[in-house]
């Protein structure tokens, strides 16, 4: 639990500094957030887990005795052993190497698409909300229209055609391109109340240009929401990735992700359960830890509103 101690002391340091610097004795925003976050054991556990998983994804492939793409034809569908720590698949691939590699892929896809989604959603959502009148009307119509067809179907369609080493980039692209719409709606709703705040009116009446207002006033004040949404968005993106790859519509061999290992494990559920169990545990730890961090951040940033983002 070295990490949790680290977090706690960091918060303590910040607090001490804060109390000295201002005579007003107000607690700084980030201090407060860090302190509240550190006070939640579940959030700290989540952070530790995530760090361990990231370390595993980076270090795993280096310490594994087999590469994920070099099958051991002498050991097909073997149970975990000293040589194959998590066992092997029916094709002789080392499950440890596969999981480490797959975890890296899932993490990369999850984080990249979640960040991209947040950026796109923030820009479009705030813009639609800020400009009243026809921009808003047309924008909302397009957003509604884009939500008519479930995005899962659309992602599957465009990722289907791509395979090989670039498959994961296409998948990230697909998840991003069809994933921002719902978030944009949420952010639009939030911006609607922000745009009525007096400091936004004040900036308008001063003659500040619209995009400057969006950049200077709206997006920074959505900051906490954006951070939380990015973190929780990782869970959603990892889940999408897993589902698509599991159905054979996402990452395809020779590349691997946790979803494709699950798919391989499904057919040998009784004869070689380890193929299924290792990626499942990795997946659950990954999504669970990120969710814990996200929940912890949400409670720390805004203790009053526990409502998830819903349009």
């Amino acid at each position: 639990m070295a990490d949790s101690e680290l977090t706690v002391t960091a918060a303590a340091v910040l607090t001490a500094e804060d109390e000295q610097s201002t005579g007003l004795r107000r607690t700084g925003r980030f201090t407060l957030i860090a302190r509240r976050f550190a006070r939640r054991p579940s959030a700290v556990v989540g952070l530790v887990l995530l760090v361990l998983l990231v370390v595993f994804a980076f270090v795993g492939p280096r310490i594994a005795q087999w590469g994920y793409d070099e099958p051991d034809f002498l050991a097909l569908a073997q149970a975990p052993s000293a040589e194959h720590w998590f066992g092997t698949t029916t094709g002789g691939s080392d499950v440890f190497a596969l999981v480490a590699r797959g975890l890296g892929r899932s993490l990369a896809i999850g984080i990249l698409s979640s960040v991209a989604i947040t950026v796109i959603a923030a820009i479009i959502g705030t813009t639609i909300a800020f400009f009243e009148g026809w921009v808003e009307r047309v924008g909302m119509w397009v957003l509604d229209m884009l939500l008519v067809i479930p995005s899962f179907l659309l992602i599957a369609m465009i990722v289907r055609s791509s395979s090989g080493a670039n498959g994961w980039i296409w998948l990230t692209f697909g998840i991003t391109v069809f994933g921002w719409i719902g978030y944009a709606r949420v952010l639009r709703t939030l911006t609607l109340s922000l745009r009525e705040l007096d400091y936004v009116h004040a900036a308008r009446y001063m003659g500040v240009r619209s995009f400057t207002i969006i950049r200077r006033h709206l997006i920074p004040n959505l900051g906490s929401v954006l951070i939380i949404q990015t973190v929780l968005g990782v869970v959603a993106a990892v889940n999408s990735e897993t589902a698509l790859s599991f159905l054979g519509l996402g990452i395809k061999a020779p590349d691997t992700s946790l979803g494709t290992i699950l798919q391989a494990g499904q057919s040998v559920i009784l004869t070689a359960p380890w193929v299924l169990i290792a990626p499942s545990v990795a997946l659950v730890l990954l999504t669970f830890s990120v969710q814990l961090i996200g929940d912890g951040l949400r409670d720390a940033i805004d203790p009053n509103s526990r409502s998830g983002g819903r349009a």
Binding site: D198, Y199, Y205, G207
Partner: peptide
């Protein structure tokens, strides 16, 4: 816009909470 300025009712919402006073005053 320079000759006409406004002061709002609620001092909580009329200043951007994320800007130091310097930036608030520098904006116009």
């Amino acid at each position: 816009r320079r000759d006409l300025q406004i002061v709002f009712q609620d001092p909580m919402s009329s200043l951007d909470p994320r800007m130091p006073v310097y930036d608030v005053l520098a904006e116009p």
